[in-house]
Structure formats: C-alpha cells, structure tokens
C-alpha cells in the first residue's frame, strides 16, 4: 500500500491543484481566456490519445475526429434524453449543485468514452489488418462515414446540429480528464508489457518473434485511443457553447490532430502536449492578423517540417522531477 501511495502522490497533488485552479479561474479569469484554456485541455486529450495510435504504436489513423464525434453524440444523447431533465428536476443550488453536476459530468464523459471505444473496436478489428497509407485512408473513410451518418440522423439534429443541456464541462472537469489521460497512457506504455506498443512501431515483425501478440496490442491502442477521443468529444459537446454539428468532426479536424501529433514528435507524449497547446493557442495569438492567421499557420507547418522533420521533441520526453523507477540497477563492477 505504501508503494501505491508513493506512486500516486504526485498525481493526486496535481489533480487537487487543477481543481483549485478551476475554482479560481471560473471567478477571476476573463471568459475568453477561460474558453481557450478549456480548448487546450480538450486538444491535449485528443492529441495524446492519437499519439498512442499513430506515434507510439505506429499505426496511421486519420479518423480520430470520427471517434470524437461518437463520444460527443453519445454523451449528447444521454444529456438530452436523461441527464439534463433529471438535473433540472432536482432543482439544486449552490455547492450541492456543483458536486452533483461534476459527478453527472463524470458519468456522461465515461459514457462518451465507452461508446467511442466500442466504435473503435468495431472499426479497429477489421481495419488494423491494413498497413500504412491503406490504414490511413480506411480510417479517414470510417471517420467520414460516421460523420455522414450523424448528419443524416434527424433525431440527433441532423446537419443542423443539436444543443446540449448542462452540466457544462468546466476547467476542472476538462483538466482532470486531461491529467488522467496523460498519466494513464504514460504509465501504460512505459510498463514492461506496454513497451510492446513501441516495439510494434519499431519492427512489427521482430515484435511478433519475441512473443508479442501484435494484433492484440494494435487493437488495444486503437480502442484506448478511441476511448479518450470519445472522452474529449463528450467534454467538447458539453463545453460552454453547448452546441455541436457534424461538420465540426470532419476530415479536416482529423488531419489537424495528426498534424499536432507529428509536430510534437511521433511517440513523445510531452511533445504532444506542447503541440496541442501551441497549435490551439497560435490561431488565437494570430487573431490580430485576422485573415492572415491561417496563412501563417499553414506556412509555419511547412517550415517546421522542413527544418525539423522529426517534430519538436522527436521521441524524447520531458520527465517530471518526481518521476519514479520500479528498480534501480547497481552495476556489478
């Protein structure tokens, strides 16, 4: 038990800090900046989870927005049909309301994640037999099909979109999810078994000959990646705007996410976090240049690739100072 607490102390502290910060930001931060911060948090979840598939396991998925859509719509359906009316009926106020909404958000987010994970499993099982560019184009196709299906589902608002009742995903909710997502994926892929994900990316064939069930790990990566995409989707659907349309989850969104993964460095989780934050902030920073901002954005993309094709971080990681190792070897001299 002692080891468990030592291992998780830092994580708990971070989560508490996030909660406290969320509390403060809600009162004292300009809503515009608050919204950008929330967007950054959602982007981090999306990019880190996509990195698990594309960077760490080396499978090239171009359909992440599709799984985000599944999470968003599943959670939206839950909120519209059940959670929203139920919360409304309770007519709570004050601290009580906050706690209940936070818990409700947790349930909604998990439902979104599970729905996306199921979709990921259904898509991943057949698709992962394909390799490289074929997998890319097939996942792009799945993403688009998912979007078009939502577009044609009138019960969910069709192409017009659907508006979603509270609870709202605030800073605390989003960043608790982001921190857990990063911590879980990091811990998984740096465990002994979890290194299999990297092994598949390095040499799928050699991985099989040391006994790694490559198909299983590819599916795990895909399902887990989709789960977090669904979580992000649910958070996105419940963000302040409270309105989603299928067009928000199109191929362009998927491409944007791949771009962030590559810019951060394929396989580098810290790189993904930096890229997600930077590329979400950049268009906002460039807002002053209004119509030139997208031009600058795309120009930067090309320039970064030309000067640093391995991305910002390559495969390197920034390790936190309290990073713990299960075993420290004393070399026999």
């Amino acid at each position: 038990m002692k080891v468990f607490w030592q291992n998780n102390m830092a994580l708990l502290v971070v989560l508490l800090v996030v909660a406290a910060a969320g509390f403060g930001f809600q009162r004292h931060l300009d809503p515009y900046y608050y919204k950008i911060l929330v967007d950054v948090g959602i982007a981090i979840i999306l990019v880190v989870s996509l990195n698990l598939i594309n960077g760490i396991t080396g499978q090239f998925s171009l359909g992440h927005a599709g799984f985000m859509a599944v999470g968003a719509y599943a959670s939206a359906a839950l909120s519209v049909l059940a959670a929203g009316p139920w919360l409304n009926g309770l007519a709570l106020g004050g601290a009580q309301k906050m706690v209940v909404e936070f818990v409700a958000l947790g349930v909604i987010v998990i439902v979104g994640g599970v729905a996306a994970a199921l979709a990921g499993f259904v898509v991943g099982m057949p698709a992962l037999r394909l390799r490289g560019d074929y997998l890319a184009i097939a996942t792009l196709g799945f993403g688009e099909i998912i979007r078009i299906v939502f577009q044609n589902t009138e019960q969910l608002g069709g192409a017009r979109g659907i508006s979603i009742p509270p609870p709202r995903s605030d800073f605390t909710g989003v960043y608790v999810c982001a921190v857990l997502c990063v911590a879980f994926i990091w811990r998984l892929v740096h465990s002994v078994k979890g290194k299999s994900f990297f092994a598949i990316r390095e040499d799928e064939f050699a991985a099989a000959t040391v006994g790694i069930d490559t198909t299983k790990y590819k599916v795990i990566a895909f399902v887990l990646g989709s789960f977090f995409a669904g979580v992000a989707g649910a958070l996105f659907a419940h963000s302040a705007t409270g309105y989603i349309t299928p067009a928000q989850f199109d191929a362009v969104k998927s491409i944007e996410l791949v771009v962030m993964v590559v810019l951060g460095g394929l396989g580098s989780i810290s790189g993904s976090i930096i890229a997600a934050a930077a590329l979400t902030l950049l268009p906002e920073i460039l807002r002053g240049f209004a119509e030139y901002r997208l031009v600058v954005y795309s120009l930067l993309l090309v320039l970064v690739m030309l000067t640093r094709p391995q991305g910002l971080m390559g495969m390197k990681e920034i390790k936190l100072p309290w990073h713990r190792q299960p075993y420290q070897h004393k070399p026999v001299a």
Binding site: V258, V262, L301, M305, Q310
Partner: peptide, 13 residues
C-alpha cells in the same frame, strides 16, 4: 509521415 505533413501544409497554404 513528415513528408505527408508537409504535403498537408502545402494544401492548407
């Protein structure tokens, strides 16, 4: 993949 991203960049540009 870097080449692919460069291509995406050119497209966006």
């Amino acid at each position: 993949l870097s080449l692919l991203i460069a291509a995406i960049g050119v497209s966006l540009l």
